[in-house]
Design a protein around this nucleic acid. Sequence first.
DNA 1: GGCCAGGTGTAAA
DNA 2: TTTACACATGGC
Length: 213
Amino acid sequence: MIRQLFDALMRAYGPQRWWPGDTGFEVALGAVLVQNAAWRNAEKALAELRGAGALSAPVLLSLPETALHALLRSSGTFRVKSERARALAAWWVERAAFAPAVETVELRSELLSIKGIGPETADCIVLYVFGRPVFVVDAYARRLLGRAGVGWADAGYEKLRARLEEELPEDPHWLGEAHAVCIAHGQATCRRNPRCSECEVRRWCVTGRVHDQ
DNA sequence: GGCCAGGTGTAAA
DNA sequence: TTTACACATGGC
């Protein structure tokens, strides 16, 4: 049932080519910068960093605090994110090269031990940077499942993630697309308007289709 | 002007 | 274990 819902969404929205980024570090940094921010604004900060030649961990670490603040300003909460970006960069310099040899569970807990990396951000990195099969639980996924009538949609992060990973393919590419269509669908439907909860997801429950036609 | 965006850490009950 | 709040910019 969950599997079929995602399949329907994937058919409706098509391949998403997500997550964007030229390097692993850029993708990981993007996951930090998008925290509680619109992607558009996170992207601006990444562009600023690129312009400054600071889209690499060692260079980012070498920047004075004030310079980093200025570059990250457009992503919001820039003082907080400067510290988080640095913590990530420090881990990157030290550990990223060893990551391929580390078990997924271990890699995940390493990332979670970095200050400023919580479960969602860690899973984005584990999935999109290191290609491990994890389901990224975000607000969109939660809302989607809730509207589809999934009873355990409001369970805690770990519980929800485990349950979804149990039911879905253990395939990083598929799970990446699954996360991406949650976002595509979430952004295509109104976030607050209650009518939207009567929208495509509910219709899917009846017709097996996300969109008409 | 007000509300919100692909969250997390901390403090307090 | 749960809840409340700070963090701060940019778009609508």
